[in-house]
Design a protein around this nucleic acid. Structure first.
Lengths: 201, 201, 201, 201
DNA sequence: TATGAATGAGCCTTCATTCAT
DNA sequence: GATGAATGAAGGCTCATTCAT
């Protein structure tokens, strides 16, 4: 009987195990040797499951993104107030629990790779994230407009808001920048302006 | 008599010549050998003018930033309308002339270095840019508030606006993203909301 | 099945092969490239077996010293006369067979490294050699004293004798100095003085 | 009127100034640039006065040796007891005043160079030192024999004694070895044996 | 004569990937 | 399937020496 190997599972396991290293050292300081050792697998075997080093981190990122997406969607759907929905959407940029910080780091490394030596695969992935989140954001805003809670021009801020998120992530990874609630304040201030019935003099 | 060499000039010349390579290949794919060859100089000579590879790109970045700052300040001071001042401030993220694109690329590489392997020097430099531009932005907003053209809460958007700029830069460097006027639209939309006397239903 | 490599053996083989080069060119004129080529191995492979260039020569030195120690101990134990025991101890400084000359060269390179740029590891190793050989020498002398063959003050010459050995090694490595029997003469003359019953006018 | 340069003097001055650096950093860590800067001279000028880096340290060593020789000779001639004469001869290996330590370091570096990459010039110089000092030592011993103070066989220890000196120097440069009076003890013990009228049971 | 800019070979080390077993 | 030894290009940096001015 041949040894049965659950290839997708093992692939996941390796990516899982590499995640900790990835967070700790960052992409460019990470070696295949370390990943292999950490996963309890031979260096050569890595290439049975992944095409390249980049492929590994891509798997990590994909894994993280997938689970994050689910959470976010769930959060949005289980929240009522528009403000809370939007904040939920930006949880990645705001949350300060361990899990949140971890995810931010992964995303930051992902961006770093895209900037340093962009591959089509990576850039496409980033592009899809942007589309997806911008669309979710637009859905929220559209819903608010339809229900009469938001001014019609609210939609014009969707793209910009997403991009703020990116900028915040970028800065949050650098030591000096602890403006974790910069984004919250901005969102809240903006909402005051685009909510109907709250435009005070 | 000693051979007279204008050291600062030569340093600048090398940095200048390295800039093209830097833009083309990015920091991590750039080698000292190439820089030297491109500058028509021996490898060893590079180290007469620069302390390290990082020092070279830092010089490039400093050079670019310095000249950019001057232009921006000049633009701001020679513009009347608040909107134009703000757009001038974000010229780096908006402009599509060759010079603008080049600068954006340089800035993007700079960010990339900061993300990949941040040195104190680099991060400090980034921090100072942030402070400087945020303050200029606040000055513009404050002036608008004082002159009765902007609502008081306008100031709350200063930090967020700067960060949008960063996010835009980040995305603009990736091939697929040609939303150059995303930022303009966002700014214009926001201004409509924070201007006094333009809040229409 | 994994390719089976006797790692310690290969390490030894490389060290062995490097020894010839080491003797021929000396530490500072030796390059890793040469060592690799000479061993029929890729440059990178060297670092699978050794941590650094210094590590390689240290292995060579250790190898030589280890085998030498065994021989010396054996010689001393299988010799009867005190004089012969002492001469056996200094075999490294005296012997003129190929093996002896080779060992002397290795030892000389070792000293050279210690003088030029001493690392803790190297100096400690030298220190241990000194302690070991001085102690063996003292044992021989003590035995002679106890058995009534040597005068009690003989022990006072142990340290000095060891150091003569060092000095001789040092000089023997330089081309002009062929006083290989300088040490033998000195030892013999000294023994005449410290032996009991042979102090004649 | 042509600028008159006292070339030999300037050569000496440069060597003098380089000595401190030489002591501090050792030959292999010393750069021509440093020497030039320290001497207040251009790098290129160094090569007007010296043929090579080695030539500079050779000058330093020659300078040191010359002044040392004078002192030693003077000491020997102004001392009466044989033991004191011999100790005076080995002052380089024994003295612990600043000057003595300095000289020992220079000599050690000299030996280090001879071991690492011996040039004819250096080795000849070392050979001459050996001859000179051994001869002085023999003179002292011969005088002692003639005056009936030393046994005839004393002469047999001349070569060995010189070599001990070398060995002591070599070790004294390494951190762990503080047996500064090893040599004194050895000499004194030996003298007791070779003096006439002091052979006790 | 003095200068110091320029040279460029050479150094040790790293690491993603391959492939024989 | 699994292994891990082997590869070898590439990289940043140093420094004694030369030579145009």
């Amino acid at each position: 009987m041949p040894k049965v190997v659950d290839k997708p599972k093992k692939r996941d396991d390796i990516a899982q195990s590499a995640t900790a290293l990835f967070l700790e050292k960052g992409y460019s300081n990470l070696t295949i040797s370390e990943i292999a050792k950490n996963a309890g697998v031979a260096k050569g075997s890595i290439y049975k499951y992944f095409e390249s080093k980049e492929d590994i981190v891509f798997a990590i990122i994909e894994q993280a993104q997938e689970s994050y997406d689910k959470e976010i969607l769930y959060s949005i759907q289980n929240t009522n107030k528009i403000e809370d929905k939007i904040l939920a959407l930006f949880d990645l940029c705001i949350s300060n629990c361990d899990e949140g910080i971890k995810r931010r780091k992964i995303y930051k490394e992902f961006i770093s790779i895209c900037l340093d030596d962009p591959s089509e695969k990576m850039v496409d992935f980033l592009y899809n994230i942007k589309e997806k989140y911008t669309n979710w954001l637009k859905d929220i805003l559209r819903e608010g407009i339809l229900s009469g809670k938001l001014k019609p021009q609210s939609l014009e801020f969707a793209n910009g808001l997403f991009v703020i998120g990116e900028g915040v992530l970028l800065f949050s990874s650098l030591d000096n920048y602890n403006d974790e609630n910069l984004l919250q304040l901005h969102i809240k201030s903006l909402l005051k302006l685009i909510k109907i019935g709250e435009n005070d003099e």
